[in-house]
């Protein structure tokens, strides 16, 4: 327990940890402030204004179509006739239903509709911070010789590395739970002031809760992978290098090559797609070059669906591989 306490203290004391957490919170605050100011509450005044705008637009377009018809009739038998259809009745007058007043409503924060995107934003940002904090936490220890010092005190390699990882994961869990709670409360407030949360049912809240739980999973895996990679390379830069390598080689490089080679469902090879699948429960990828014919709906593109279970499986495999490799090398390699 004393080692765990020391490691938790070390993690929290680190300037890098504090800086990155503060940075992530500032960005999240900026997102919340931005959402507050770009949305507004929709009341009877806004609805009436939107209806008036839709009506005005309908009338304007109706006038234009009537004028076009007149011009069409007048142009018959003249060289200008080519500008119009042969039958001027084809220029149909618009219907009032074509002009939806909703289009003229100001942006409003519908909690049920928009908050899931905010949870994804929170998860992505905290996952990035978790990866870097995890990598730096153990990478700096290796790099500075602190790990060797610690092992002179506690010559139990797996226990030391395992305790460090536990301290990191518990710390990240605490950070995520608190931040997610504040994030939810802030957006519920924004919805109250600049939108609506009326459509939230207990089922909808449960769904939000589960999504935030998946966000926690993503953040913990990101932290553990950063930690594991930096421990494998005994340097923070190792983890950051791997991530940059993955982005350059797999995301940009592989993405471009697969697109050029017209590979089916090329997006399925890209990490963000799997992250979205995890967070949004599923993602459907369509191959627009194919035709899956059906008598009812005609030619439809072929599609595959990546579910959150599939994405979770991939995350679990990556987590286990990296952490096991880090533990194995910790046990086997000389510490010089």
């Amino acid at each position: 327990m004393s080692l765990y306490k020391a490691e938790t203290r070390r993690l929290v004391k680190r300037r890098f940890t504090r800086l990155f957490v503060a940075g992530a919170l500032v960005v999240l605050a900026a997102v919340a402030v931005g959402m507050f100011f770009t949305n507004q509450k929709v009341g009877p005044d806004q609805i009436a204004r939107a209806q008036a705008q839709a009506q005005a637009e309908f009338e304007e377009v109706s006038k234009q179509v009537a004028q076009e018809r007149k011009d069409c009739e007048a142009a018959k038998g003249t060289p200008s006739a080519s500008r119009f259809p042969p039958n001027c009745d084809e220029l149909q007058a618009p219907q009032p239903s074509d002009f939806n007043p909703k289009w003229h409503l100001p942006a409003t924060f519908d909690f049920r509709e928009k908050f899931p995107d905010m949870v994804t934003t929170l998860a992505a940002l905290l996952a990035l911070a978790a990866f870097v904090i995890g990598a730096s936490y153990v990478g700096a220890e290796w790099n500075s010789g602190g790990m060797m010092n610690l092992l002179l005190w506690r010559p139990q390699r797996l226990r030391v590395l395992g305790t460090k990882l536990a301290a990191l994961l518990v710390g990240l869990t605490a950070l995520t739970v608190v931040t997610a709670a504040v994030w939810t409360a802030v957006f519920r407030l924004i919805a109250g002031l600049r939108g609506s949360a009326e459509s939230m049912t207990s089922g909808a809240w449960q769904s939000i809760g589960l999504m935030e739980l998946r966000a926690l999973g993503l953040i913990l895996v990101a932290g553990a992978v950063g930690f594991g990679l930096a421990s494998l390379g005994r340097h923070t830069a190792m983890a950051l290098g791997v991530v940059i390598g993955v982005i350059v080689v797999f995301q940009f490089g592989l993405g471009s090559v697969l697109a050029l080679a017209d590979v089916k469902f090329a997006e399925a090879y890209l990490v963000p797609v799997w992250v979205i699948a995890w967070m949004s429960k599923s993602i459907k990828i369509e191959d627009y070059n194919s035709c899956d014919f059906s008598a009812v709906s005609g030619c439809q593109p072929e599609s595959i669906t990546i579910t959150w279970q599939m994405a979770g499986g991939v995350m679990a495999v990556v987590f286990l591989l990296v952490v096991t490799a880090a533990m194995w090398t910790m046990r086997k390699r000389d510490i010089t």
């Binding site: 004393s2 080692l3 306490k5 020391a6 490691e7 203290r9 070390r10 004391k13 680190r14 300037r15 700096a140 220890e141 500075s144 010789g145 602190g146 060797m148 010092n149 610690l150 002179l152 005190w153 506690r154």
Partner: peptide, 23 residues
């Protein structure tokens, strides 16, 4: 062992206090 190696951003007090906790 060999040259002294410590995390530069911690104070001497912090460094020893963390080691004391760990041990």
């Amino acid at each position: 062992v060999e040259s002294p190696q410590f995390f530069g951003n911690f104070t001497a007090n912090d460094t020893l206090s963390l080691l004391a906790d760990a041990g």
